[in-house]
Design a protein around this nucleic acid. Structure first.
Lengths: 138, 138
DNA sequence: CAGAATCCAACTGGATACTG
DNA sequence: CAGTATCCAGTTGGATTCTG
């Protein structure tokens, strides 16, 4: 049932997943699943991502063979991004995970609240992370 | 086909995926999919993870309601971790993604090599990341 | 428009030493 | 055994400014 051999070194898998685990990667791949998009379109559609990070993330995706980057040297310049076959293939498990996250977010939020209630004590080691989550929940 | 409404604010989804995207999270969840485990077992089975990071990751997973933490106050102490129903549910899309990563890693590595060949020029902006990948590939 | 460059705060993860 | 407490390097991501 678990497709990963326990004796296999799975860190390479983590290496790829770490890429996908970037803050915006899944959102970008999901958006590109609808079809080719210009840089600015992606930026506007996602919202809240900085230009630098979007550029870097798209370059990573290009490097891994998930998207193509097509430059049209006009004035103003135009750059289109599109999923490759590999990228569309990746979209399947990624969008499944995205859907899961969307569906189960309420449960996770409930679990977090419950954790806060049941562990009201300090836990000084983890104050940073907890503050982070409380802020994200606002 | 894409289950995420383009007009929905998807950053909350990224918030949950960001947790899962931690360096070891997927490996830990996958391992716990085989059944309850003690702290030291997980640590040995994964290998290369520091005690601090494993503790923090397990606490995050507990907080989100993916694992239970059972303390047996003996000497020496014993702590067991086990997936909750929600965690086992999460395991489905997560192991699908893990399997995908494992199967397609060769393609990604080829794509990266090709990218290096086709873009031998500097790209000073991304030297850090590239060095990082080359090291990981060793 | 799509970036490149720079500066900078925040977070991640590792090493080490200590404890009930 | 299973942590907790520090310290620390490296990475991520954001804001701003500048360019073809």
């Amino acid at each position: 049932m678990i497709p990963i051999d326990p004796h296999h070194d799975c860190r390479p898998v983590g290496e790829i997943l770490h890429q996908i685990g970037g803050k915006w990667t899944v959102l970008i791949i999901t958006r590109l699943g609808h079809g080719s998009m210009r840089f600015g379109e992606i930026k506007r559609m996602i919202g809240g991502i900085s230009q630098k990070v979007l550029t870097a993330t798209l370059r990573d995706l290009e490097m891994d063979g998930f998207v193509t980057r097509t430059v049209t040297p006009s004035i103003p310049p135009r750059v289109d991004y599109e999923l490759t076959a590999l990228g569309r293939d990746l979209l399947v498990p990624v969008s499944a995970l995205g859907a899961w996250a969307q569906e189960n977010r309420p449960k996770v939020l409930v679990a977090r609240q419950q954790y806060f209630d049941e562990h009201p004590d300090a836990m000084p080691m983890r104050q940073g992370r907890i503050a982070q989550l409380k802020q994200a929940a606002e």
